[in-house]
Design a protein around this nucleic acid. Structure first.
Length: 291
DNA sequence: CCACAGGACGGCT
DNA sequence: AGCCGTCCTGTG
């Protein structure tokens, strides 16, 4: 447990290591955090809004309660994990990974809400990050619940229950294109109980993937992203174009199939494969590998 | 005007 | 089981 202090309505973790908001929020795992300047970021997660400040060594949670800090933000930012150990184990005998970690040293894998992660990554397919953020923001604004906080016009991410009640026509306004039918059917599948959350949460990796891929619009890539970014499992290595190219250039020497890249990485990085994927993804984008 | 973007579906062989 | 045309929309 990190030491923290409560000062007025703010909670401060002093001298936090292995964190940088740019690395964490810009590594492709989340779409609702915004740089508002002066080291501050504003985001919405798990039905709460938060203004986060990073001084370079202290992390400040503005206007929050101890209860929300402990129940929501501590797990959300994966603060219980020893990232020093993760990095040490990943970079042992691996100078490539050591270099990648030097670039993205402040990455943390956020434990995001399952439904939000699912819908967000359905939207992500065949789309760039700016447009994903735009659609997700519009979805929240149109169908989420308003949140009272320091900033105006802030909304929760709508639940699948809410989305399941909408028609395709209702979804047209978010401009998600052909993905709107994925949102429509997927949210209904989640609510109807057709999808076994037990298989996803507690099954083997094969069982979890098979169950995820029953969801309309979910293929291997989206399934793996949701399993990783909602904190269900970490021994998983989502392969997209970027990761495929960075793996070809840094490790394999040739462009292997997604399946082969994923197998190779899971064998090499084991239970830390998910962390390795994030360091490599961030590194690939920073170094523009694969453009 | 056309290519293509951080995929998946569905129909074809 | 693998290949490939197609899918909305915004941006270059």
């Amino acid at each position: 447990m990190h030491e923290w202090i409560l000062k007025k309505n703010n909670i401060i973790i002093k001298d936090l290591e292995h964190f940088d908001p740019i690395h964490t929020f810009e590594c492709g795992q989340c779409f609702r955090w915004e740089d508002i300047g002066s080291g501050r970021w504003f985001g919405v997660a798990r039905g709460r809004a938060l203004e986060l400040e990073w001084t370079g060594k202290d992390l400040i949670f503005h206007d929050t309660t101890e209860e929300d800090f402990l129940n929501i933000w501590y797990p959300y930012f994966d603060l219980a994990r020893d990232y020093g150990e993760v990095k040490e184990r990943l970079s042992r005998n691996d100078p490539i990974m050591e270099e990648a970690i030097r670039f993205g040293y402040g990455i943390r894998l956020l434990r995001q809400d399952f439904e939000e992660t699912l819908i967000s990554f359905l939207i992500s397919q065949n789309n760039g990050i700016p447009r994903i953020k735009k659609i997700v923001g519009c979805l929240a604004k149109t169908y989420g619940e308003p949140i009272k906080c320091s900033r105006p016009d802030v909304y929760t991410f709508p639940s699948c229950e809410k989305l399941a009640g909408l028609t395709l026509d209702d979804l047209q306004c978010i401009r998600a294109g052909y993905r709107d039918k994925y949102i429509h059917r997927a949210s209904r599948q989640i609510c109807s109980g057709e999808i076994s959350m037990d298989a996803i949460m507690n099954g083997s990796i094969e069982e979890a993937r098979t169950e995820m891929e029953k969801i309309f619009g979910v293929g291997r890539k989206v399934a793996d992203c949701v399993l990783l970014f909602s904190g269900i499992r970490y021994d998983i290595f989502p392969v997209d174009r970027w990761v495929k190219r960075v793996m070809a250039e840094l490790y394999l020497g040739y462009e292997a199939s997604n399946e082969e890249v994923s197998r190779f990485a899971r064998e090499k990085f084991g239970e830390l494969a998910g962390f390795a994927q994030q360091y490599l993804f961030y590194y690939a984008r920073e170094k523009k590998i694969g453009m």
